[in-house]
């Protein structure tokens, strides 16, 4: 069976492959992938084994994403956990080019890469539906969180809970994530 599963890990595109049988499930090994960053460098989930990894679905044209970048939500979090957590943004927008991603990185001086998933393979494996849509993979490579960045879709709450921050604090303290699944919100992922 295992060999069959390995055999099912096919190259789907020149710049993206993912094990075809993978479907993200909480507490189960997160789907493996390799995607190119905006400079064309291949980045694999397996490069970061043993580390906590955050996946952030991004689309610079989405107003929800724009709001979180204008207010610094993502960058502040990535900076807070710098050295302890690997942050990878993924752009599945079918029309997005690596140059678009590079422009967004330079506009906001991002400390993390934006990986190109225009074929949507990785987004489908994780079940990404919105931008932003957040996933956290724990030190054992298992999916520990999926859902929204916070509990404030309209962006007007004075007292909001950042689910990702809460989950990361718990994971880094060796605790279980008490709220591993929330409703994500935002624009739809612009699949092909």
């Amino acid at each position: 069976m295992y060999r069959m599963i390995v055999a099912a890990c096919v190259m789907l595109m020149a710049n993206a492959f993912v094990c075809a049988q993978d479907k993200a499930e909480l507490g189960k090994p997160a789907p493996q992938f390799t995607l190119n960053d905006s400079s064309g460098k291949a980045v694999s989930l397996s490069d970061f084994s043993g580390k906590v990894v955050v996946l952030e679905w991004v689309n610079p044209q989405c107003p929800f994403v724009q709001r979180h970048y204008q207010t610094g939500t993502m960058k502040t979090l990535a900076d807070k956990y710098n050295g302890k957590v690997v942050w990878l943004a993924v752009n599945t927008t079918s029309s997005a080019t690596p140059a678009d991603n590079a422009a967004w990185i330079s506009q906001y001086a991002l400390p993390y890469p934006i990986l190109s998933d225009t074929g949507g393979t990785v987004a489908k494996a994780y079940g990404a539906k919105t931008t932003p849509h957040m996933f956290i993979i724990d030190q054992q490579g298992k999916l520990a969180y999926r859902g929204g960045i916070d509990d404030d879709p309209q962006g007007n709450k004075a007292d909001r809970t950042n689910y990702v921050e809460k989950a990361l604090d718990q994971l880094l303290a060796g605790q279980t994530v008490t709220q591993p699944e929330t409703r994500s919100y935002g624009c739809s992922v612009k699949y092909k």
Binding site: Q70, T97, D100, A103, S106, Q107
Partner: peptide, 17 residues
């Protein structure tokens, strides 16, 4: 896309939203 690149070249551009 061109608009996006122009906006990205300058400071944050709220007009894009």
């Amino acid at each position: 896309v061109l608009l996006g690149l122009c906006a990205a070249a300058g400071a944050p551009a709220p007009a894009r939203a």
